[in-house]
Design a protein around this nucleic acid. Structure first.
Lengths: 275, 275
DNA sequence: GGAGCGCTGTATCGTATGTTACGTATTTTG
DNA sequence: CAAAATACGTAACATACGATACAGCGCTCC
């Protein structure tokens, strides 16, 4: 049973030629408002010509464009009258594994932040924003991309940010550059990697301040860490989810950027100039 | 301060003549949809003539009817995109910047998945699980870590998964390995990178199927993409958020893994043995 | 009760919008 | 590799929509 136009589209999008598919995609991306505008505006937004839009609505089974718009309006009217039904997904019947996955992820995030006080985050942000020393980031097998993501942003708002990549021997050699004033951000979730634990221990002995992103069971690195962020990772999937940690990382990136705004703005302008 | 048109109306309805007041009342009663229809329909619903409707919108301060409709649409767009912000009280007062950030991120995810049908995800997962060709992944300046993250997982459950890294010239050379049966997963959000667009175009010409992760404004690559995932990226921060795309990526990873479970399980055991 | 003013609807006009026909480019098929 | 079929855009077309001029009606205030 197809109840909404959005469903209708995703049902038939596979059988559409390229141009009409672009129309479909832009409509889904800005659903449903772009469809209430004129054909010209719709076509411009999709980057195709007007006739393509008309062929697109014709393929959906509408006689003409106004009829298509009326259908969208009716749908909108139904939504607006029962706002509650809108937040929920129209119930995947055959048990698509999407909703449970999303729900679990959202719950993980709420739970993660519930155990994370504003003050903790502010402290960590302040530490990362400190310009006295260098910042190193490193991650495990699956979490290294998170370290990269954070490094890519932090490196823009402040100098001396380094992501440690490649073989273990390479980053172990970088230990020589690390000292008391430096910060090491480590991502490590199950199954915890011995190499990272050893690395953290040595860094700790050199007086490096460690910020650890881990799961709720805490990597052994927590033992050496100055700050520990414990994110929920359990989802109905074969894999653990790093999404909660990702959001914490983004939150910290935002907080650090705000703190460095004065200096950072100048720096960002300089970088823009360099491109 | 008057923010919505509904407020504007109730503010001035007292100073209106009878006919226009009827127009105002029917608009409020069927807000805002009747205002998106034609003047003729609006006038019929209100039981007045067309010019009365036009005088009504003129009195509200609009130059013409289309301008009035655009205002209604903008208002609707704002509502649809942040249903939470309207129902929730505007701000937690003592407000560390944490909770707005989290709220926005959660909302982004709900919104992203609302525009993403189970079928679409299933289609993409099926495509990624196909073993006929190779899978390549690449990302932009800030999104490349997402490509890495996805690649790290996919590479475990199936062979021939390659993350394209390093300099442009390097991955451009890899184009020679790509053909019709292959899939290219691209992450590209604002500001869209020319190098990626060029790369996508060439790959597309070679018949490679492109799966695009982008933001709601759609990277120009959408033009060449077989599948487009449009994630919401706006958060109260200096940076855009890739969290919603990250969650979609995790969902897909889970779905692909499930599909390959039979083969995949064996493969994973083999890999475990190799460590 | 009459004159003036304001509100409203009818009828007409210009235009922006949706529609269609046709030629070209691209893809698919034998 | 050729030929057919499909898809896409340009440009001309027709319609329906919003805008406007004008006349009729009711109301208010002298």
């Amino acid at each position: 049973m197809i109840s909404s136009i959005a469903e209708l589209i995703s049902d038939r999008i596979g059988a559409m030629p390229a141009g009409e598919r672009r129309a479909a995609q832009t409509l889904i991306a800005n659903y449903p408002l772009i469809g209430l505008k004129t054909v010209a505006e719709f076509s411009a937004a999709a980057g195709v010509s007007s006739p393509t839009i008309l062929r697109f609505v014709a393929r959906l089974g509408f006689q003409n464009y106004p009829e298509f718009q009326s259908a969208l309006q009716d749908e909108l009217a139904a939504q607006l009258q029962s706002p509650a039904s809108r937040t929920l997904n129209p119930a995947s019947p055959g048990g698509g594994a999407v909703s449970p996955m999303l729900e679990a992820t959202l719950e993980n995030m709420r739970e993660t932040f519930r155990h994370l006080s504003d003050k903790q985050l502010a402290d960590i942000a302040a530490k990362l924003a400190e310009r006295r020393g260098k910042t190193f980031l490193i991650g495990g097998r699956f979490t290294d991309p998170l370290a990269r993501y954070m490094a890519a942003h932090l490196a823009i708002v402040q100098p001396d940010v380094y992501h440690l990549a490649g073989q273990e021997s390479i980053w172990r050699d970088r230990l020589i550059d690390m000292g008391k004033r430096d910060v090491l951000v480590i991502f490590d979730i199950r199954r915890y990697q011995d190499s990272l634990v050893r690395f953290a221990e040595t860094a700790h002995q050199r007086g490096v301040q460690i910020v650890l992103f881990t799961d709720q069971w805490l990597s052994p690195i927590a033992r050496f860490a100055r700050h520990v962020i414990a994110g929920r990772t359990a989802v109905p999937s074969a894999w653990d989810s790093s999404a909660a940690l990702f959001v914490v990382a983004e939150t910290l990136i935002g907080a650090v950027t705000r703190q460095l705004e004065a200096d950072g703005a100048k720096r960002i302008r300089e970088l823009e100039g360099l491109r």
